[in-house]
Design a protein around this nucleic acid. Structure first.
Lengths: 199, 199
DNA sequence: GTCTATAAGAGGATAGAC
DNA sequence: GTCTATCCTCTTATAGAC
């Protein structure tokens, strides 16, 4: 049974953490927007750091949940189409949640000094789960010879993740959602140039 | 005739601005490492912001100078080789100056709130100079039909910059210098899939 | 749950001596 | 050029009343 005040705190804090960053976000500003006094925030969170990681984990949890659902959805299709759908629906999710993705990018690329170690550990754990989902599909591609097996599984996973990250960063930097057609063009280039061919 | 203390201030400040960020970098920390008292820093710079932009402009100036030199170097070669050399030598420069590139990426992606407007203006000015260098070479490619002229110049420039940025971000994120062969593979994919073909 | 009041400290910046 | 001393503001966080 989530509390109204708590939801407001999380909403405002998240926005500020993304837009102005952890260090520049201060308790007073959050509370001003939520219309409570700073002391009240400490009823919900024991510290600024506590608030941050509560949000950080929630963003990752949501992302992993969505990716899992996508991966489990398709059954009777070829594994390369599975990977394609994973990509396409990931892009849909990222497009609609660009701010969450910007949040993750920000704190993985440039973590605040005092949170850096914790973020690194949490990142490893969460992105490990992400890897498993991708690995699973690519493994199927290799088993059914949709992808040449002269390369390592981990190599393909890295290739896919790099490609996906490029797309994501382009979205974040340009702050626009690409249209379906552009996503498909990128996919074709990726599949033909980076995956199927071993240049 | 640069002053020894001033050089130290700039060196230390630059490192801290990259690694821990503008907000988390404080005058006291800089001065501690330089082994001077905070008041002394204000003899060289009128504020923290002043120090920051002095470094910001220097990083860009150096980058533009190097790019200009590369572009002016090659004369008797085909324009597509010119673009290839621009790419290759840019990558060499970026590899050897990853920390400077990380600095620029950091402040363009996530500028401190109070500096955001100034950074945006300066960025426009500097990257305009960068665009001119790239434009000049691509224009030659189109004139000599090395690149199909069914696409706009600005379209090609954007394509090149996006490609270059991908390579750069990969270097920064993985914090390693790719080897020559990998750079060449990336170039071939780019040239064949993104430039020569109009998919 | 939310408040008032405040502790405790860190930060940018300046005055003025040497 | 570099220092000591200090101002003033902002920040996280807590104590304790309601």
């Amino acid at each position: 049974m989530p509390n109204k005040t708590n939801e407001m705190i999380r909403y405002v804090a998240f926005r500020l953490f993304v837009e102005v960053g952890y260090e520049a976000t201060n308790i007073r500003n959050i509370c001003k927007e939520v219309d409570i006094k700073p002391a009240s925030l400490y009823f919900y969170y024991k510290s600024k750091e506590d608030l941050f990681f509560s949000i950080y984990d929630e963003v990752w949890e949501d992302k992993i949940k969505v990716l899992s659902n996508i991966a489990e959805l398709e059954h009777n299709i070829s594994p390369n189409m599975k990977l394609y759908f994973l990509y396409k629906r990931s892009m849909d999710y990222y497009s609609e949640n660009i701010i969450k993705m910007k949040f993750l990018l920000r704190y993985h690329l440039f973590p605040p000094e005092d949170l850096a170690n914790i973020i690194r550990d949490k990142y490893r754990e969460w992105s490990g789960k992400e890897d498993k989902i991708i690995e699973d599909i690519i493994k199927q591609c290799m088993e059914r010879r949709v992808l040449p097996d002269d390369r390592d599984l981990s190599d393909y996973v890295l290739e896919y993740k790099t490609f996906e990250r490029e797309q994501l960063i382009e979205m974040i930097i340009n702050n626009i959602k690409k249209n379906e057609r552009e996503f498909d063009r990128s996919w074709l280039r990726f599949w033909n140039c980076n995956m199927s061919n071993s240049v």
